[in-house]
Structures are given as structure tokens and as C-alpha cells.
Design a protein around this nucleic acid. Structure first.
Lengths: 348, 348
DNA sequence: AATTTTAACAAAACCGGTTTAACGATAGAA
DNA sequence: TTCTATCGTTAAACCGGTTTTGTTAAAATT
């Protein structure tokens, strides 16, 4: 491998001079610059990224940190990443995707600082160890999603208005006449789960005119497949509580599970059962009959905002705390309908 | 920031000893190991990734290289990346996504080696500069897609059988009675474009029984949006050649453009126009009425194979050339139908 | 003309790790 | 008892860049 020393020797100048030619941080005469670049080209020399990072204490790499075992990117994550990548592209940053399991990272021989200038942290949890760790090591971070109250004023984050949005869709379902809900929620420790739960419960309470009843089930960490979770839970719950006439699902994958369960039970959507999902456009759409009603989370915008804030934070020394809310829109297709009084809920 | 020297001083041992404790590359007594780890914990020390990479000449990072300006990941890329990430996860590699524009990379102050141990190169072109560059610098690479003949025996790659697959779907359409095609193909310089074109033409020729006619249009580099390209091209072509009864689209996005054009022209799919797409499950599915017939490329499997081959290549010194073909499956939904002899093609 | 400033570069120290060579202590072999 | 291995450790060299400091010649100032 060609090093800076080789180029220096070939050109008859010092290492420092070659360095300056490439980094452009110090003026070098036109004549020498030419000769150095010439020699570099001839030797096929390119500065070593890591040596440079070590000396510069900067990598110009952003990290995208996603927790969870055997993780798979969803459509939501894809859009989000597209947003992040666009900002990276504009600002000359590379993106490092880190999905390594904690069991791996905790082994002594793998312990190390992260090779990034800052990190975007996805799906924060109530007691998220990642946050404390980055705060300790003074690694700039931006969360996508709300942190726990303890960190509310210590880290920047980008989020949807989960409480308000869930309230809105709950009212929509209430106005359609639904009173008995199954809420397929995100894993319990995720902050998004409690926000949505809060929005849901508040709307139910405020609506007040009649008693509503509901079953909120959190996806357990032990289950990897949202589809299976949606299917199993819907199946079991509808059998136990046939009065349920509407399902709110955390993701389109879960909703798909609910669809399959309904089919298995011989229940018609939306005539007998309304299904709603927190989701961007679905990957599974060919499988959805009827088309799924849901809410657009604008994942790409979340990614754009997060990356922009992070890069902004890297530029200036002063660490300001930034909170950005990205708006959402309800997308009404045809999986939700008025509760059918006749047969309403009495599937069996 | 705490360095190895701080820990060494605190523990009263040498830097080398601390290094050995963390790298586990040399035996250190249990007693000293304990003391070092204790001090490291107290000082919140973690080995510096860059320094380590520099000394080790290895980063344990794989690169994912995607060309194109203002690039956006498609569903295909998402699935592929999920495959790659799974292998990374299993082998302790991080993934660096590089979509930086060449104009940025070419500026003197940004020239540098890539911070990866090896790279997965997407969407290779006939005369792909990336390949020569990596070969020169001896960076291990695996392509997803076929390289040009010149590199056929010099680089490993993973690909679908584009020629055979396109032949198959062309025969499918021919047997449905279609004779006049519009082929919305990938950009001309991409090798995948010529493979699919070859498969298409060969099938047409072999079928032989009647004359077929077709219009093959390559997506120009100047257009970013596949949707716009599909729309505009379909619109213009169908107006010019109303005898066309089937469209083969390079991606679901292009197919969506074709759908919109058909709608605009008042042409029914599939009664008057069949549409076929090289595509995984679509993101746009809610927009597809009727559901799109296409071919599953198994992008995730492509990713898994590519990453596996690359990591295998990193392990051993001997550089064997590996070629892997990932099978495809036709997914018949309802956007293709028998050519309607009555009105066949005569839209106007 | 003498002095200060500036430009352009060289030499050496440095970034934070790893690795090699050398060494003392202990253990086993001759 | 002496010789040789082995183990655990240290000191110094090294990875490939950047940066600080120092030097010299030319330009600018007084």
C-alpha cells in the first residue's frame, strides 16, 4: 500500500507538505502541488481514512443505531434512512449502520468507541442504556422518538406527535360507533408505546358519552415477528372478547396479522371489524384486502430532520437541545367502517 | 477523552499490557486483567476505534456502494440491505453506506481510501470505474449484478439469471397472445439492462411463429424519477404505437407510471394493456389496481449471498472468484391478460 | 540599509492504539 | 546445579496520517 511517505520521497518533499496538498489546510505553491499530485496519481496513492480520522479526531461518518436482536428494517426505517442519506449526501457524510447485538458489543475484545462523529438513535426505550452511554462519552446524538422524562432536557430528538395523533384516530373510530377496541401496541418499554397508549386512553375518556372497553396488548420482546404477534393476539382476543369491533395496530405488519386472523375467524373487514394501523405505505399491500386505513408518519422527514439537527450540532460547539415534531396525516382507505349495529362485534 | 495511557498509568502497568487485556491477543494474568478492567470501567475507557483500525489494518466494516445522484433506496435495496445486515450481524461487521456523489469524492481534499475492509457494489455498469479502482487498490469487492465481460473472471458477483428470467416472462406474454411490446428498461449502461434486453429479444426470436414488434426505451440518466419516466414514456409511446398491448417495466415504480399513463389514456389494465414488472413486493401497492404481476428477485437472498461471499473472501488470503445465481419466481397477480383480439391494442 | 513580516517548506512530535524485541522470574529438564 | 522453556510484562517502534515548531529566503516596512 502506498503511504504518504512514499509520495513524499518520490516528490522530494516532506510528509507534512504532501499532507497539506491533500488536506488543503495550509498553502502550498502551485508548482509543488502539481508535482505531489502527479506522483500521487502515478503511485495510486490515496490518504488513509483511518489515519486521517485518528489525527483529525473526526470521521465524517454518522451512525444509525438500531436496537433489537435479528433486526430487520421495515418500510418505516427504509424511508427514514432515505431521509438521513439525503442529508448525508448534501453534507459529505457517510452513514454507518449499526445493528450489532449487545451480546457481541459487550465482549471485552469488542469493546470500543464507535467510529462515528455522532449518532442517530432509533426506537428509544424508557430506560435506554444507549443514551446514558453516549452522554457519558460526549458523543452527539439525536433520537428519533421521545426519550424518557429523565433525558427530556438533555438530548435532542425528532418525533411525531404520537399522543395527539393517536387521540385523533381514536376519536375517528369512536365517531364510527366503535366502543370496544383491541390495541396491538409496540413493546412496552418503548416510549412510543406509552405515548400512543396515553393518546388512546385520553380520547376514550374525553369522549365519555358511553363506556368504552378495550384490551391493550404490547408486543413481547420474545417474539420477533410482528405478523405472528398480530395474528395470534387477534385470534385469541377476538375469541375471548367477541364484542371488539375495531383494532388499532402499531404497524402494517401487525395489521396484516389481524387481517389473517379475521379471515381465519370468518370475520369481514370492515363490515364486522375495523382495522387501523400506524404505518407508512405498506410493503405488504398486495396482501391487504381491503386497503388499509392508517396514518402516514412521514418517516423520510423524520430522517431528514434528525440528520440535519445532528450535523448542525457537530458544526457548532455549543450544544443546544432541539426538539422537532413532524406532522402526520390520516390516510383513509377502506379498512375502517361504521360499527354495524346488527352484527356489531358478535362474531363467534 | 480517556486513552490507553491513562488506564495504564492508573493501573501501574504498561500500555501494551492494557492493549493485550482488551484485544485478548496475548495472555495476561487474571489478576492484572481484573485490575485493568476495573480501572477502565472507573475511567469510562473504551479503546479508540480509529487507532485500533489503523494499527490492525482492519476495520470490521463492510461497505455498501450505490451509485447515482440523489439516490433513493428502493424496496429492492431495502430487502437487499436486510440480507446484508443479517450476515453482518452474524459476523460482527458494521455496514457503511456510501452514496456520496462522485463530484464530492473527486475533490482533492476529499480523496481518501475507503474506511472498509471490503465492499459490496450495487448496480454495476458496463464500464464501471469503481471496479477498476477497487481492483487497483486491492480492496475486496463483490458485485450485485453482472460486471462487464472484461471483469467477468476478475471479480466475484451475485446475480439473478436476468437473461433466462426475462426470456421466461417474455414467453409468458407471447403465449398470452401479445406481439407488440413496450420495454421500459433500466439505464443503458447498466449491465442488467443488456441482459434483460438479450433475454427479451432471444425469446421473441425463438418464438418466431409471427412477427413481433417492440419498442425498447432505456431510462435516461438525466431523469431521477422512475415514475415520471414510466409515465411520460408510456404516454408518448402508446400514442405513437397504439398496437402495443403489453409493457415490461424494469421496476414497480416504472410500472406505476405506466398505470397512470394508461389511466390518463382511458386504457383498461389488463383488458387492453398488460403490465409486467421486475419487482419485489411493491411499496406502492395500494396504488396498483389491478395488483401487479411481476417477478420476485429475492433481493434479501442476493444480499445474504453477497455479504457471505465477501466475508469469506476477507477471511482467507487466497482470492477465489465466486459467481452465484439467485433464483427468481414469477408472481402472477392480475395485471397481465390474454390479448383482446377485438380491441387489442387499438387504443386511441 | 536595517528590520520586520510573510510565504513555503522541513523536521519532529503527536493522534491512540498494536506489536516486536528484550527481559526477569519461575518451572521443568538434563 | 545448570540449562532451557515458558510466562507475564515492559519499553520502544510502528500504523499513516496531521500539526507544531523552526528555518530560510523573499517581500514589505521604516
Amino acid at each position: 500500500m502506498t503511504t504518504i511517505a512514499d509520495v513524499a520521497k518520490a516528490t522530494g518533499v516532506s510528509k507534512g507538505t504532501v499532507s497539506s496538498v491533500f488536506s488543503k489546510k495550509r498553502p502550498i505553491s502551485k508548482e509543488v502541488t502539481e508535482r505531489v499530485l502527479e506522483a500521487a496519481r502515478a503511485l495510486n496513492y490515496k490518504p488513509n481514512y483511518w489515519a486521517r480520522s485518528l489525527a483529525n479526531k473526526s470521521t465524517r461518518i454518522l451512525g444509525l443505531n438500531i436496537p433489537g436482536e435479528k433486526f430487520k428494517f421495515s418500510q418505516f426505517h427504509l424511508s427514514l434512512m432515505n431521509g438521513v442519506l439525503r442529508v448525508c449526501y448534501d453534507h459529505g457524510y457517510r452513514l454507518l449502520v449499526n445493528t450489532l447485538p449487545q451480546t457481541f458489543l459487550d465482549r471485552v475484545e469488542n469493546i470500543s468507541s464507535d467510529p462515528v462523529d455522532g449518532e442517530i438513535i432509533l426506537d428509544p426505550e424508557a430506560d435506554d442504556l444507549r443514551i446514558e452511554d453516549r452522554l457519558n462519552r460526549e458523543v452527539p446524538i439525536v433520537l428519533v422518538g421521545r426519550p424518557s422524562k429523565a433525558y427530556d432536557n438533555r438530548v435532542s430528538y425528532v418525533d411525531n406527535d404520537n399522543v395527539g395523533m393517536t387521540g385523533q384516530i381514536t376519536r375517528y373510530l369512536l365517531e364510527l360507533g366503535h366502543r370496544n377496541f383491541l390495541f396491538l401496541n409496540a413493546p412496552k418499554h418503548r416510549t412510543v408505546a406509552s405515548d400512543r397508549e396515553l393518546g388512546f386512553l385520553t380520547a376514550c375518556q374525553e369522549f365519555g358519552m358511553e363506556q368504552t372497553s378495550h384490551q391493550i396488548v404490547h408486543k413481547p420482546d420474545t417474539i420477533n415477528s410482528s405478523l405472528d404477534f398480530g395474528y395470534e393476539t387477534t385470534l385469541a382476543t377476538l375469541r375471548k372478547m367477541p364484542e371488539i369491533s375495531a383494532i388499532i395496530a402499531d404497524s402494517d405488519t401487525m395489521a396484516l396479522g389481524a387481517y389473517k386472523a379475521a379471515q381465519k375467524l370468518g370475520i369481514q373487514i370492515p363490515e364486522q371489524l375495523s382495522v387501523f394501523a400506524f404505518s407508512d405505505d405498506s410493503v405488504f399491500s398486495p396482501e391487504f384486502t381491503p386497503p388499509l386505513t392508517g396514518v402516514r408518519l412521514n418517516a423520510e422527514q423524520l430522517g431528514i430532520e434528525a440528520a440535519t439537527i445532528l450535523i448542525e450540532q457537530l458544526k457548532k460547539e455549543a450544544k443546544t437541545i432541539n426538539r422537532t415534531i413532524v406532522p402526520t396525516e390520516m390516510i383513509i382507505r377502506s379498512s375502517c367502517a361504521h360499527r354495524n349495529i346488527e352484527m356489531g362485534g358478535n362474531h363467534s
